[in-house]
Design a protein around this nucleic acid. Structure first.
Length: 297
DNA sequence: ATCATGACCTGTTAGC
DNA sequence: TGCTAACAGGTCATGA
């Protein structure tokens, strides 16, 4: 699932349990995820304190003391969960359920001496499209996967004018253009569908038709820009408000539910006020697109 | 260059 | 109930 809001929710959920604590032990239950795990991963991170958790697009960054950072991506099915042991790490045991077969990486965090007990942070990923990498912190700017990323949809760098520049020569459907991480970093299939619906734009419309002859943003591109900001901000908020409940129930992070207006709602009535349409599913670039053929033009 | 497609991997669900 | 096919929120390599 993890698009930007989900990764941000994971970051916020993990931060209280990782920042300021040390990685007492790292357990690797296999040698690779999507890519091989870093060489000497265990030896390089064990004993280091976590300074800070940050995020770039859909990447989670765990900044360690000693100028080393872990870059993690959750792929399609990655999630973290938190297990607390009031009696310390020794109190944990290993009931191996089906789901736990995909617990690939376990961080055993040592308490911070502030009355909080020891905690295990467990990375689970059935499909293994996620990965973890180890990078010198001062080299993060040059991290290859970050190099081509477009602006975050949460910041000021995303504007209608910026998108006009990127869309001007693009003949591909606007759906595909928005999924391109080099244009905007962090949008995925769900939020692209949602943003297009909110702004009344057909996902099949060519991106360059949202730009005027002069190369400026058409009014509808202003709407789209606002919709992207709104939908991402609302999803982050929804993730934040679901955090407490989630941690309390099973400690899992990365799969909070959110109400969508079109995504996965094929056949349902369009919720746009006054619209009589029905949500349809089409396939673009091999992926499902949900949209309302009546109010999205 | 730009765009669409297939590949990566496993689990879940719809349909017969 | 069991089997099969389709599908899943993301990237990356490939070829047109």
């Amino acid at each position: 699932m993890p698009e930007l809001p989900e990764v941000e929710t994971v970051r916020r959920g993990l931060a209280p349990f990782m920042e300021g604590r040390s990685i007492g032990a790292l357990t690797l239950n296999r040698a690779d995820l999507r890519f091989p795990l870093p060489r000497d991963f265990r030896g390089r991170v064990e004993g280091r304190r976590v300074r800070h958790l940050s995020r770039r697009a859909k990447y989670l960054v765990i900044v360690l003391e000693g100028e080393l950072s872990i870059v993690a991506h959750l792929g399609m099915s990655g999630s973290f969960r938190i297990e607390e042991a009031p009696g310390g790490l020794a109190a944990f045991h290993h009931p191996r359920s089906k789901d736990e077969a995909h617990d690939h990486v376990v961080f055993a965090m040592t308490g911070d001496g502030d009355g909080r007990g020891d905690v295990r942070i467990i990375y689970n990923d059935p499909r293994r499209f996620g990965f973890m990498d180890l990078v010198e912190t001062d080299a993060l700017d040059r991290y290859p996967a970050f190099g081509a990323l477009g602006p975050e949809p949460t910041g000021n760098a995303l504007s209608a004018g910026y998108l006009a520049g990127r869309f001007r020569a693009k003949k591909s459907p606007v759906k595909a253009a928005l999924l391109d991480q080099r244009v905007i970093a962090g949008l995925g299939n769900i939020y692209v569908c949602e943003a297009l619906h909110r702004s009344g734009i057909s996902p099949e419309r060519r991106a360059n038709t949202l730009v005027t002859e002069e190369g400026d943003a058409a009014p509808v591109l202003e709407d789209l820009t606002r919709a992207i900001r709104d939908v991402i901000a609302e999803a982050i908020e929804a993730g934040g408000s679901s955090l407490r409940d989630h941690i309390r129930t099973d400690g899992s992070l990365g799969y909070f539910q959110h109400r969508f207006r079109v995504y996965d709602r094929e056949g349902a009535p369009c919720v746009t006020p006054g619209c009589t349409g029905t949500v349809a599913r089409i396939v673009q670039s091999g992926r499902s697109t949900f949209h309302c053929p009546v109010c999205q033009t």
